[in-house]
Design a protein around this nucleic acid. Structure first.
Lengths: 338, 338
DNA sequence: ACTCTCCGTGAGAGCGCGCTCATTTGTGCC
DNA sequence: GGCACAAATGAGCGCGCTCTCACGGAGAGT
């Protein structure tokens, strides 16, 4: 297969000849310049339609020095990037927003062989802007990138001096406070948490929110075990919590997957949700609503995060003013498990 | 923010001057031409390193008439494309493969305002190849696209005359036969299915596989209800099945989400999995393994599908011979629910 | 020793478009 | 009716690169 005929794609020149005008005029029409006679506009448009003309992206980039493309930089191991549903949603969200624009998306996994080449690519005029997302809040090594090209970060910067960089984040701290307070309002007192890794903002902040809400209420914060956000790790953490032989009447898990991992262990131990132990998760995964009982959770959308980041970046590329910080709110979804 | 300095990115010309050679030689080195004196190669490489040179993508595209970018065309409504985890995984899989190449990904949602413009874009020399994925097997309206540019389809083509097109598919039929036979081997006889929509290949084929396996064993195929792949629809389908008051000792659900929806209903009715009703799902969702009991399922990966499609397309763009049909195998994962 | 071949290199012509600047055409005013 | 001025259009250069082709020099053959 694939002799890739490709014929001869129509060019500006051909359209111009057909419409009886100059290239410049066609270019003006294509780019919506206001100062072209209406009759010429329609003549050109006709020619465009007849020839099935579409501007050549490469030529346009070269001439205008704008690439209409942005990079999504993910400083994580390749395998991680491409197995984690969080990143899948981010990518989807970014792609979703860009679909409404003329921008194109390139994905860069930064831990690739040649880190320098990555940086050169990013600063070498191949992209109009970059999105940087990582699970690890420490990784703001791309902060300097912002000097040569607009950058939007996903996740709060770790260092104070980064406060001139633009970022979008989900409000993990107040989200987990909300979740924990909800359990407290339900009359629970011995509220455990299955936390995520402390070196990820989502892990660290959600643990922090739980601590704050517990402190606020004057409750003990020793009931904590850590997982890695996988269902299996949630199950193991739950097992360790129960093994303490301390009263536990509620669990706040840092994500739904761990919460559902805990479900199984709670059931194994002959306990009932929510009667004996109330459970609240985080993320509003599709399956939380299908679990039995349906899982109470905090709704947040990586999808939305990606879309907002993309939209912020595009605005900033186009010279509009943008918020330096955008915090996406999460909301509590109460279901049967609490 | 964003005064976008962008300085002056080094050009081929500058590298040439610095290395004391001509542009052509630098170009040869950059593109790995075999016929350049070793000493010049290293001189050029030095200059490249010193200047931090990276080739300008746009210029390269223009001159070489190769864009190094491919389109992922998804003829579905925008909202569908960007909420369905199936597509997220496909995108991720494609991106994963392309990350190992120099290709860039553009996503096109075909139901956009201007279908003609989409087609013109695809045939207008803006991409080197296209990937077409849809849930709806009927949608091979892009078959003709293959004449101007290499195309790889996700999913089996519906029409026989399409058999010269290249596609990659997961083996839904034999996968669901395997799942059903597994239940039969476990001694189940009244095996129901919760099928997916018949206008999607995944729905249609998985239903077909169940029928074949049931026919093969001489069992009755009347125990069928349809859902839309969502957990809620699985629950409703299960409810309808139970309402028939016919003996049911197993359920094969066309995906894990519906299977887990059924879990809840089975529990509500005081039945036990797998003692009273064995359950098998499809897809190997992360949560299936965390459910209680863990869900037996068919493993398949949209991620892999995307990666294989991308790899096939790139090969075909580069003139290599490719399989016209690639069928990805699925495998049974036996867990506690059967 | 002279020509022939071949390999490595350089010169230069585009690729299709945007944009500046000169030119043409049209309009209003004295 | 002639002039100034504005608006609309066209001519042409250059973006950074690839690629063809011509050229120079080294080795081989007669």
């Amino acid at each position: 297969m694939s002799v890739n005929a490709q014929a001869q794609a129509p060019t500006l020149e051909m359209v111009a000849a057909r419409a009886g005008v100059s290239r410049a005029t066609v270019s003006r029409v294509v780019n919506g310049s206001p100062k072209v006679k209406p009759e010429l506009i329609s003549a050109v448009n006709e020619a465009i339609a007849e020839l099935n003309y579409v501007p050549n992206r490469a030529a346009r980039m070269l001439a205008s020095r704008r690439t209409e493309s942005i990079a999504l930089v993910i400083p994580e191991s390749t395998s991680r990037v491409f197995t984690d549903p969080f990143f899948a949603s981010i990518i989807q969200g970014v792609a979703m927003h860009l679909a409404t624009t003329d921008y194109t998306l390139g994905i860069v996994v930064a831990s690739e062989a040649n880190p320098d080449k990555t940086r050169r690519y990013l600063t070498g005029g191949n992209i109009d802007g970059a999105l940087v997302v990582s699970h690890h809040s420490g990784d703001h090594s791309y902060a300097r990138l912002g000097r040569s090209v607009p950058v939007v970060f996903g996740g709060r910067p770790l260092h104070a001096e980064d406060n001139d960089s633009v970022f979008v984040d989900v409000d993990n701290i107040s989200g987990s406070m909300t979740a924990t307070r909800h359990l407290i309002e339900r009359g629970r007192r011995n509220i455990a948490t299955i936390a995520g890794p402390a070196d990820m903002p989502a892990g660290f902040d959600r643990e922090l929110g739980w601590r704050r809400a517990m402190d606020e209420a004057g409750f003990d914060t020793s009931l904590i075990e850590w997982g890695d956000f996988s269902p299996a790790s949630g199950a193991m953490a739950m097992r360790r919590l129960l093994a303490r032989n301390t009263p536990i009447d509620a669990v706040f898990a840092a994500n739904d997957q761990m919460a559902l991992g805990a479900y199984a262990v709670i059931a194994e131990n002959g306990l009932s949700i929510p009667r004996d132990i109330a459970v609240v998760g985080y993320d509003d995964d599709a399956l939380g609503s299908a679990a039995s009982p349906a899982l109470t959770t905090m709704h947040q959308s990586a999808n939305e995060l990606g879309a907002v980041m993309a939209s912020t970046l595009v605005k900033s590329i186009e010279g509009q003013d943008v918020e330096h910080q955008t915090i996406l709110q999460t909301r509590l979804i109460v279901r049967g498990s609490s």
